[in-house]
């Protein structure tokens, strides 16, 4: 374990594993969000059910807390690795070329800034729809009403839209990148993985964006 954490390849492995974990969570989260289109009972009922998951082995709400701890650990490990690797990468190329030309794809070039945007967004998102601190309604146990109230503000729509575009770009490069880091070498896999990454990015971005768009257009109210 010390070998892994001490090397660039090891840290990238940590990033790949935690990234895929967060990606799996995002997929479930996105599908669950679509319940907002089926009315308050469906959405709020689902939110309640999440707290009863694992009973009677787990106590009420424990499943959610376990998920939160795991996700927090994943975010922290992913972020710390990214920070340390980025500092290293920047130091490894101290002098820029005079003759600049555009390198790599947009998704690849925006990984670092995208990651920072996503980290800030997670803070906002938790304050908005978990604790309700910045939500205009913020009533516990009523996520449907909180969502509708939240997206009445223009800035909430802007924040969520920017973040969801950022997450799409992040996944676009990150998913393929994670597969390479974890050693997928089979010939032909690269094209499949790149297509898979694009598909995942599109599905997740579109799925998440459908909620604020739904509220804005009045489909959800």
């Amino acid at each position: 374990m010390r070998t892994l954490w001490g090397s660039t390849i090891g840290k990238k492995t940590v990033m790949a594993v935690t990234g895929l974990l967060m990606l799996a969570y995002l997929l479930v989260h996105m599908f669950a969000n679509l319940k907002v289109f089926f009315g308050p009972e469906e959405m709020n009922g689902y939110a309640h059910w999440l707290r009863t998951l694992g009973e009677p082995l787990l106590r009420h709400g424990w499943f959610l807390w376990i998920a939160r701890v795991v996700l927090l650990a994943a975010v922290v490990l992913h972020g710390v690795s990214a920070y340390q690797l980025s500092r290293r990468d920047i130091a490894a190329r101290p002098v820029k070329y005079q003759h600049q030309r555009r390198q790599a794809s947009y998704a690849t070039r925006t990984m670092r800034w995208g990651g920072i945007i996503l980290a800030l967004f997670i803070v906002w998102h938790v304050l908005d729809l978990t604790t309700g601190t910045v939500n205009p309604r913020g009533q516990e146990g009523h996520p449907y009403e909180n969502i509708v109230a939240g997206f009445q503000n223009w800035y909430a729509n802007v924040i969520y839209s920017v973040a969801m575009l950022a997450v799409g770009l992040h996944i676009r490069h990150g998913f393929w990148s994670a597969a390479q880091t974890l050693g997928v070498t089979r010939p032909g896999a690269a094209r499949l993985l790149k297509a898979g990454a694009t598909l995942l990015a599109l599905v997740i971005t579109a799925g998440f964006l459908s909620v604020p768009i739904g509220v804005m257009t009045g489909v959800v109210n």
Binding site: K12, A104, T181, G183, T185, P187
Partner: peptide
């Protein structure tokens, strides 16, 4: 520095060492 899979290396390589070479080393490591 570390690898961020931009692919610039394999594009520049005059001997055509392919990108999956890096993935193979990651697995070995």
């Amino acid at each position: 520095g570390g690898c961020t899979l931009t692919g610039e290396c394999a594009t520049a390589c005059p001997k055509g060492i392919p990108m999956p070479s890096i993935a193979a080393m990651n697995r070995e490591y």
